Amino acid sequence: MTRRNALIASAVAGAALLSSCGSEPTGGTELRPTPAACVVADGAALAPESGILAGVNLDWGRQTLAEYAAALGGRPAVTVSFSHFPLAATDTANLEAAHAQVRDNGGILLLTLEPAGGLDDVTRDATDGLAAMLDRFNRAGVPVIVRFAHEMNGSWYAWGQQPAAYRAAFRRVADSVHRLAPGSATMWAPNYGGGYPFAGGRHQALPGTADFAALDTDNDGALTGADDPYAPYYPGDDAVDWVGMSLYHWGNTYPWGENVVPEPGKFLQQLTGRYDGAGGNDLAVPDFYDEYGRARDKPVAIPETAALVAAGEGGAGELAIKRAWWRQLFDAGLPRDYPQLKMVNWFEWDKHEVEVGAPVDWRAAGNPRTAEAFTADLPEWYLFAGEREPCAADG
């Protein structure tokens, strides 16, 4: 699924940052800060022993992190920021602004890097420079997880469907992060494999190329849904600290865009490769949770999730759709049956979506009614950031 850049507005850099947001959300649990402020944590150990980190993909141009936390009634444990890579001056300023807000709020920064110029731009100098910046963030009390070139199995991004070049670039990023920013970690995050190989995109692998041959995992001379949508892109256990997958409810049938209540069990069925919904049979999709979380002992993240409510399309109501989806995320069986699932980040945006040709309000806290319902349903094992004490590295 295509995700456009979410760069921080320059005005955010000068926004007033609150040091407290008040009460914790109903049902959620507050993560207590480390007693020794600004001690650099082990980036590879950012997953909680139990429970799930509650995070947000924030529309930085419309809302500060403090404003969102006040609306929700709790500080997110994870905040997502997007950036072009390598970093240009504007990207660096945006990232500094995101870091400042997370520093004052508490929690983890999940940095999604988008090499829009192509994978050849991911040089050692660029990755080492990034890692030096992240180390400075870590020393100011902000752990960072780097999600590099997400949805690389799709055909819509400049880094898509190039398995060898992608794995090499990811490993360069991982080497720099692990070597120079030990308070940070890496995340590998493909697109959900339903609909693979996503034919028709600008960057699809073409017959006769080495990429096409590498992606033809069943060696039948064609790229189809029978080919593995994940394995050719995996850069190796030593390079990957977290695994993740974006899972949205776009509707139940293709073409997407109808306001419909999600089918029962859809979220877990997609995560585990068992979805056989009205949108088509995706049962050839591997069990992502089992193969990349449980078998490799990696923490599993849902870096982006939400449920579609398209303006002017009729159908089911906003609260019915969104509540049906978040209640699947809050299912009491998750921490018991899927203990590797350690992070879920809601996509808190109201934006025009090219895929459906209409504005879509993805937000859970966009109005008081949905915010109240969302926080009322939060389970105790969803973890939020506790108050963070200032430290000498702040500035």
Rank of each mutant, 00 (worst) to 15 (best):
L72T: 13
P303Y: 09
A310I: 08
E318M: 12
A70L: 15
G386P: 01
T217N: 03
R327E: 15
R294L: 15
Y382W: 15
F384K: 01
S176Q: 08
L109G: 02
W326V: 06
Y292D: 11
D121M: 13
G333A: 13
A132I: 05
N105D: 02
K342W: 01
D237W: 04
D121V: 06
A284V: 07
V240H: 05
A168H: 11
N94A: 14
G183K: 04
L268S: 04
T34Y: 10
A385K: 01
G251V: 12
V309T: 12
R388P: 00
V300D: 13
V344S: 07
G183M: 02
L383F: 04
F288E: 09
A205C: 08
Y338C: 06
L72I: 09
V122M: 05
K266R: 15
P115I: 06
T127V: 10
W349Q: 11
F374S: 02
L95D: 07
D91A: 12
G61N: 02
V243Q: 03
V240C: 06
H352G: 01
S81M: 13
W60C: 07
A89I: 03
G236Y: 02
R202E: 07
P35W: 12
G118D: 09
V146I: 09
L109K: 04
M1C: 09
D237P: 01
A310L: 08
G333T: 12
E151A: 10
K351C: 02
P207R: 13
D287T: 08
V173P: 00
P190A: 06
G154D: 06
F267E: 11
A278G: 10
E389Q: 13
R363K: 06
V39Y: 07
P143K: 11
A47V: 04
A284M: 12
